[in-house]
Nucleic acid binder design. Structure first.
Lengths: 335, 335
DNA sequence: CTGAAAGCGCTTACAG
DNA sequence: CTGAAAGCGCTTACAG
């Protein structure tokens, strides 16, 4: 910066002002400084700027890099942030609460000006603590929340859409795959909301005796494990709400490997409408929660906070059922 | 830091030394400082440390967050870096050369101490420029290179394994999906090496007249487009080397949607052995290039450079063919 | 073994 | 409109 200032014959402060588009720089001076920056190929050190002013850096904590739905979210975020002066950096945190907190601290240590947390395994309280230190948007947590914004799909409704669809097809034995829930099991968590939606819909349709929850995880492996559980039973469900596309894929694989017809013997529904779900021969029935748009919304909210908003906003997107081949060929067999 | 120093009754310099495990601190002083840091919940600001000393931050530029193979690489990197004092941050750069360079500059502006570039769309020269400024490891580029380390699969061999397998099954009309190649088309690029492996293997098997290259991209969409191209022809290939699992998935979807049997009418081979490829009903024949291990190797190499190594190292992993259902049911029809 | 001072590359508040 | 000086939170070289 010193070099730029000298070449332009001005002070460092002047260069700084041009850099920040600050008030009070004559056009002539601006021109000289800019050409000086050009010829010297000057780039300000973001970490030095962050010491005193802004770091121009935003962080997104992504718990599971493998999850294609999260990739969709990230794309949406990137798209929106890319149009600003901020740089977005991703923190691969892992699924554990502890490793996620560690990543948040690491990002704070690096002077990130705002954070987007994707489906964090942290308590509402822990999120509040973070949000009290830095502008925060949480994707995959329902409002209300005082200190941070949230972006979520209406998971309760999504589950209901699935159960409705399956019941219309004649299903009664509809199982649900539930991942293990981190501390603080409340309906602000997507998995808890999806569980509640499933439970209540089942009850409303007079199927409360058929409620069946298999606890594994929302991953290929978790889907596979659920398949093993079902196959070990004397009476299998005729339909499964897998909770997530990735779990549905694992389940499909297990079932087909065991020679069980889908949807003939077991219908399978995912959640997320990941790109793979639309592909033949998968053609998974699923719920679209518009991940790309959720990512964009989260970015928009974060930018709003950076511009000074302090009241919290809560976006709830309305999911849509996408009916494909893993449910629509089912013919109920009278018992 | 001042607070910590005062509470411990020592100087800031002393605190800094304890922080860095530097030489010349008495056990008593270390203990006092450490307890002071504990009670004050002190965390050093990484960006301030980076001003003068180390930033303890490493960056990985990932061009395509959607690509599940890249996710595998990232997992490997994270696993290895996680065991050190460094923090790994990911830069979602997009596929364009320009946006990737911009991300690299952004990371440099943030004082990252080392960079891992995943399948960059940059020329060898551009990579050299980067590597002359910061320790750099490139995944998805073959050596030799003076200034940076490389980690790659033996793409030439991988293509050859595929062609061999298909020829053994009786195929002659074997097509190859090639993505558009950024500037500087040399065999250090995976796609060029895979192309060369395909070409040469075809030639060696006396099939040079059957060489057929369809230029789309290595993505679901690119696979779909290739399917459209094939279907529009009077004479379709009997087998396709899709170049990447994601392209194979897109191709499969297009073919099945059009009622073309795989592998009965067209055999399909992917590349990468992504987690989805192993799942029924996909069961894609593919080449495993051990992405997880490649990620770990890249991290190991970067750490080696940070510890002072200046000579370059080049890791080439040996790929393995994984035969599944998209090739092994083919019965050649005599013309 | 310990600490005072200078410095990393910026921005900020203030004086002119 | 412009700039000299102080300061952000650390580390580094140096003196003791």
């Amino acid at each position: 910066m010193m070099d730029v200032a000298q070449l332009a014959g001005v002070s460092k402060a002047a260069v700084s002002k041009v850099l920040r588009n600050a008030y009070g720089v004559s056009p002539a001076m601006r021109a000289r400084v800019e050409s000086s920056m050009d010829t010297l190929q000057y780039r300000p050190l973001a970490s030095a700027r962050g010491m005193r002013g802004k770091s121009y850096t935003l962080g997104a904590v992504v718990s599971d890099v493998q999850n294609p739905f999260f990739a969709l979210l990230v794309e949406g975020i990137v798209e929106h942030i890319g149009a600003t002066d901020y740089e977005l950096l991703l923190g691969p945190s892992g699924l554990e609460t502890a490793s996620q907190s560690r990543m948040v601290r690491a990002m704070l240590d690096r002077r990130m000006e705002g954070l987007i947390l994707i489906a964090p395994a942290m308590s509402d309280r822990a999120l509040g603590d973070i949000a009290s230190r830095v502008p925060t948007v949480v994707i995959g947590r329902h409002g209300p929340a005082k200190l941070y914004d949230t972006v979520a799909g209406d998971d309760y409704l999504g589950s209901r859409l699935i159960v409705e669809h399956l019941v219309e097809l004649g299903h009664e034995d509809i199982s649900f795959i539930l991942p293990s829930i981190p501390s603080g099991a409340n309906r602000r968590r997507p998995e808890v909301a999806r569980l509640a939606g499933y439970r209540n819909a089942m009850t409303e349709f007079g199927l409360s005796d058929h409620i069946d929850i298999v606890r594994t995880s929302w991953s290929h492996e978790g889907g596979r494990e659920a398949g093993e559980v079902f196959r070990a039973r004397s009476r299998r469900p005729t339909a499964v709400h897998a909770g997530a596309d990735v779990a549905a894929f694992g389940l499909l694989s297990d079932l087909r490997g065991a020679g069980i017809a889908v949807p003939g013997e077991i219908a399978v529904v995912g959640y997320d409408n990941t790109p793979m779900s639309a592909l033949d021969p998968l053609l998974l029935t699923t719920v679209d929660q518009f991940g790309h748009r959720m990512g964009r919304e989260a970015a928009r909210l974060l930018l709003g906070r950076l511009e000074g908003r302090t009241t919290s906003e809560h976006v709830l997107t309305t999911p849509e059922l996408i009916i494909r081949s893993t449910t629509n060929g089912f013919v109920p067999v009278p018992r």
